[in-house]
Nucleic acid binder design. Sequence first.
DNA 1: TTAATGATGGCACTGAGTGCATTGGCGCAC
DNA 2: GTGCGCCAATGCACTCAGTGCCATCATTAA
Lengths: 254, 254
Amino acid sequence: MVTDMSRVPLVPGEQAAPGAHPDTGRRIAAAAFELFAARGYDGTTVDAIAERAGIARRTFFRYFRSKDDVIFPDHDSLLTMVNQHLIAQTALDPIEAICGAVKLVLLSYLDDPKVSVQRYQLSRSVPALRDRELASVQRYERTFSRYVRGRLTGTLPDAQAVLRADVVAAAVVAAHNAVLREWLRAGGDYDPLADLDASCAWVQGVFGENQNPTKDASAPLRDAGADGVVVAVFRSGEPMDEVVAQISRSLRER
Amino acid sequence: MVTDMSRVPLVPGEQAAPGAHPDTGRRIAAAAFELFAARGYDGTTVDAIAERAGIARRTFFRYFRSKDDVIFPDHDSLLTMVNQHLIAQTALDPIEAICGAVKLVLLSYLDDPKVSVQRYQLSRSVPALRDRELASVQRYERTFSRYVRGRLTGTLPDAQAVLRADVVAAAVVAAHNAVLREWLRAGGDYDPLADLDASCAWVQGVFGENQNPTKDASAPLRDAGADGVVVAVFRSGEPMDEVVAQISRSLRER
DNA sequence: TTAATGATGGCACTGAGTGCATTGGCGCAC
DNA sequence: GTGCGCCAATGCACTCAGTGCCATCATTAA
């Protein structure tokens, strides 16, 4: 009972590893990064990584589910962290909440700029890794969308809520990604947090006004049924008869 | 010179195939779909597909780059079509232009609802296919972002333009995806174009004011301006007076 | 008929990922 | 100290995707 083998706090490089030597995962990842940098991703076999790390090929797959897993270690834990952050923010404006969440994500990249930039370089050139990255991003986006949808249900018909939640989540994620990419392209040598705040503020401003105060909007927004849906968008300041004329015209035209 | 082997107009099922029998690609795809439905994606080997299609395993890879390629045939040509559409729309509001582009994409799904729904069912359950789908979506998003950025340069500092372009592209794509997913989940048995128009109108409204002086949009769908936007969705079968009553009530309540 | 072209097929190979049985070290009970 | 059991590590064999190369076969031009 000298050394505690149980669950170390999950640093990058270690992941869903079995109980054994906690730094073996890191050793493998380090070996992989070196080889990827030297020979490229496709030019590096798992055998080569294993050999350089001083382990057996089979052991590699005990620590990492696949060859590309060795590049993306900590998204799972980050996602749970993000989830916890979100369920704690029931009072805040939903957009503000997910802005806080993407800040968590960005901070995790800032945690080790060198590795983040290396990952970025690799992902940019290797299609398999790019796809993998995309899948991770999408999981965040889905999480955000679910959260926003949960905060929106009741104030909007279902279809509307899904739409808005998806769009808002996509917008915030896109903003985050733009800031992150800029930072990665620059080599990770400045502090992008202010940029993120600014971008989030802009997104909030864009969505802000139509989103929150419209508890009363639930009344006129009927459930969008299967067929024959008509949608009208207009300024509330528009003359009423003009609005009605437009709607009846569009109804007649079908 | 009896049969013309030259470049058929690229229908789904055929793709970057070599010159030969133009329907071989379709035969392979059909066999693949049947087997995927019967045994699942992972339970189907390329050997089995080839055998069922009556061709050699090696020939399969002449027609499709990979096993999952057989599911996603026509994104390349669609992407070029989208590009052509975009470069033709230099006069329109940029958001409206990419809204037209996603309508093209949606229309391509509507072209064969049965196949689209099958694809969706598969993509939902098989991670490899989901990732592939994501990658395709991302290519559209990048294309849109580039286009919007091009339209925005000069009016904004570069970093701002990139950010806004990315966010707008992501928002429109998310709106499209929400409409598409809804339609696919329902089995593809209604016309989602009105939904797409509505969603695009909403997105345009959200981004409209800060983006562009608003070209006074298409007839009944007014460009949703700064504040006090009302979006009404209702079935065309609903009684007209009921609709008007709801709208005027909601207008009065603001 | 013959030669050339091009699609197709056969074959062997690499490399990722998996299942299974075995080894070997380590702590622990006796 | 010896034996026992646990568990990570390992070795091995296997499946399957994807590729390169060469042979084959049919269609067409000469």
